[in-house]
């Protein structure tokens, strides 16, 4: 995987999240995973096509999912990851992916994005590529979101 393709994802997260009311995210670590990710509770997957092909997964635990949904709905209390919370998280993922696409355009890479699929189920396994891929852990005031990025230039 081309390391240049990672920054557009991180920059999008750092740009978009404060705009929708979150503390400024910090990149806390980066690690390599192989083939499979383990769902922390809520994992949102989006796919890319055109000059970039692949998938990104925003992976978080239930507490963080509830925190995100609540913040996006102006502080409304969220007790479980229900349909409304899933919808809020899907919307956030759309914004992140759209901003990432804009960042990729700056690298002269045109991309199209699929709709998000919100998968719920702690410890279920999701395979998003056949090889290794990079995961970036972002921290927002103690809440962690892992961005698993399995994308490549389409030759």
């Amino acid at each position: 995987m081309d390391a240049k393709l990672i920054n557009p994802f991180i920059d999008a997260f750092i740009t978009v999240m404060p705009q929708i009311g979150f503390p400024i995210p910090k990149r806390t670590r980066a690690y390599v995973q192989s083939k499979v990710i383990t769902n922390f509770g809520v994992a949102v997957m989006l796919g890319f096509t055109k000059q970039i092909r692949g998938n990104v997964i925003y992976n978080m635990n239930d507490d963080t999912a509830k925190f995100i949904a609540s913040t996006m709905m102006m502080g409304m209390p969220i007790n479980e990851v229900d349909a409304m919370a899933q919808s809020a998280i899907a919307e956030m993922s759309n914004m992140l992916a759209a901003n990432t696409a804009t960042n990729l355009t700056a690298l002269e890479l045109e991309v199209d994005i699929s709709t998000p699929s919100v998968t719920v189920g702690k410890d279920t396994k999701i395979k998003i590529g056949s090889g290794q891929y990079l995961t970036i852990e972002m921290d927002m005031g103690g809440h962690k979101v892992d961005i698993a990025i399995a994308v490549d230039r389409d030759m």
Partner: peptide, 21 residues
């Protein structure tokens, strides 16, 4: 219309939501 690479999930009690579709 183009298709993205697949994401494969296995296990039990998997829930997949797709709001607004």
């Amino acid at each position: 219309m183009r298709i993205t690479p697949p994401g494969t999930i296995s296990g039990s009690g998997i829930k997949i939501a797709s709001p607004k579709l």
